[in-house]
Design a protein around this nucleic acid. Structure first.
Lengths: 316, 316
DNA sequence: TTGTAAGCGTTATCAT
DNA sequence: ATGATAACGCTTACAA
């Protein structure tokens, strides 16, 4: 059976009492510099680190941030994970990443799990509002990412702005017929697109909105939907990179070139956009996670909604 | 100050003693069915989960697996994270993902951190052998992924086979001059490639190996290196997807089409390969992480090296 | 400056 | 079948 060292062991090696070890580790100024030096050397030699369960149990501070993500299929989550781990580490925190897979019950499980681990904060891309209510009821320190939910702390990229600047960019390239492929009609990106159209007194035809499933890249009926469009757009905005990829393939089947005939602009700017060489709307993911950690650790809890500006990454 | 429920609280609500709650939760058969039912209902109502720090401290079982990854830039790590989180969850374990960023000291820090958290196993894509020695000395339950290190438990995809089947595939498409772009010369993929050449009594020209940095996609001198090749290959194998992407861009600058003039085959099969529509060698990442978890939790610890076969994903 | 002792919320060993 | 009680390894008064 594996047995880790304890402060008691270090204390014995140093010939002092266990609390003295604790004092050294926690930088308590009352310890004799000689004792401190000795103890620190022993700690280094032995590769000792205090048991965090005991520490957490006693002091109620786990130094852990929980992150519950909606799904791990969009590639931009990798950057998110990388950013949040780094931002946490900078503050001497560890993150626990969990995948709710868009499942309400699993999300609840994860929340209970994190609470049991005494996490000091939760970053959540939520599935169900009832779980957010639970978090609030339990007085949990948490922040929502990637969603807008009133009365809860949120941090997100303005997809409305994203839709707007995407459209503006295409408009300036002389596109007046612009399609959008994405999830259901209340889609905020779509609202931004429509906003720009109305600003310019242009009409956004209903048929230019092509509804698809965004998390599942299985888009077999995309073809049918595209076929049914009477007045075909000269450009498309897609709700994410994977859809852009599928669109390009569909267009190719129809003998259309995405670089010559139809302009495509995507959301998310993952490596796919780079690979396909298409203009994309980037979320400032890194910034988002830094803010999230900052908010959870020291944030003024009166701050409710933090909106980040999307970034247009121009290509070709 | 946030205060979680404890077994004591539940006990009070149920009118029993605290150890009874523990018995109910741990499925101890000696509890009265009526009491059990009552307690379970209260637990559900209250959304109670026992404090895991206390549990870990007392029982020395944290139900946590640590995962130390070398870097989080290659996109195939996302699938890895997804897989390992899921495989762990299936066994009621939580994972803690850490990024060593290829830094020896950071790797050591992560190891100490995980030990302090009493993790029951560590999955590591290692930076430094001395840290592996430390793990062994500390009698830690761990397994290495993505690397071959003798005398330590490892699980990895056979890159030798990968190189071999990649070459075989191209050979069967009538390519006799095949280049390889990747890291230093001891590269195992390259050995597999050379093996196939020698099997067919063909010569692999030294100039067909183009050395690049694999983690950093900054390949500005790739162009120069390509220019210096006298007998230009008709096909290239790249050590990862990002290099393939850069290669395609370089070739385009030279007026060459990757689909018509030069065939490209990459390693890793991330979404980039899909986007670029190129044949790729896939690591069975999902399988790898399932094995890793299985090994750590129940594995016969005599098993030292587990080799997985790469999968050729044909495209175009 | 340092040691003694209590207590965090569990699990497990006793009794009863 | 269930209730006291000790112990896990730390932090934090309090005493010396």
């Amino acid at each position: 059976m594996k047995k880790n060292l304890t402060m008691k062991d270090i204390a014995k090696l140093a010939g002092v009492s266990q609390p003295t070890i604790s004092r050294v580790i926690n930088g308590n100024p009352t310890v004799d510099p000689k004792v401190r030096a000795l103890v620190e050397q022993i700690i280094l030699d032995q590769g000792f680190k205090p048991n965090s369960s005991a520490k957490t149990l006693r002091s109620n501070s786990s130094k852990i941030i929980g992150v519950i993500l909606f799904d791990l299929s969009n590639y931009y989550y990798l950057e998110m994970i990388k950013s949040v781990e780094k931002a946490a580490r900078k503050n001497e925190y560890t993150v626990i990443i969990l995948n709710s897979e868009g499942d309400k019950l699993l999300e609840k499980d994860h929340i209970l799990n994190l609470q049991a681990k005494n996490v000091e904060g939760i970053i959540i891309a939520p599935v169900a509002e009832e779980n957010l209510e639970f978090l609030k009821k339990k007085n949990e320190n948490f922040i929502i990412i990637d969603s807008i939910v009133s009365d809860y702390p949120c941090i997100y990229t303005s997809l409305f702005q994203g839709g707007r600047i995407a459209t503006e960019y295409l408009y300036n390239l002389n596109h007046k017929k612009i399609g959008f492929i994405g999830a259901n009609k209340k889609n905020i990106k779509l609202l931004g697109i429509k906003k720009f159209f109305s600003e310019k007194n242009l009409i956004f035809e209903n048929e230019w909105f092509v509804e698809t499933d965004t998390t599942n890249s299985n888009l077999e009926n995309l073809s049918l939907k595209l076929d049914s469009i009477k007045d075909f757009p000269t450009a498309f905005i897609t709700s994410n990179d994977v859809i852009a990829l599928n669109l390009i393939k569909e267009l190719e089947k129809k003998g259309l070139s995405s670089s010559k005939d139809i302009t495509i602009l995507s959301f998310d700017d993952t490596i796919i956009s780079t690979a396909l060489n298409i203009t994309s709307i980037k979320h400032p993911v890194n910034l988002m996670m830094e803010y999230a950690i900052e908010y959870l650790l020291n944030g003024n809890k009166k701050l409710i909604h933090k909106v980040l500006d999307p970034i247009l990454i121009k290509r070709t």
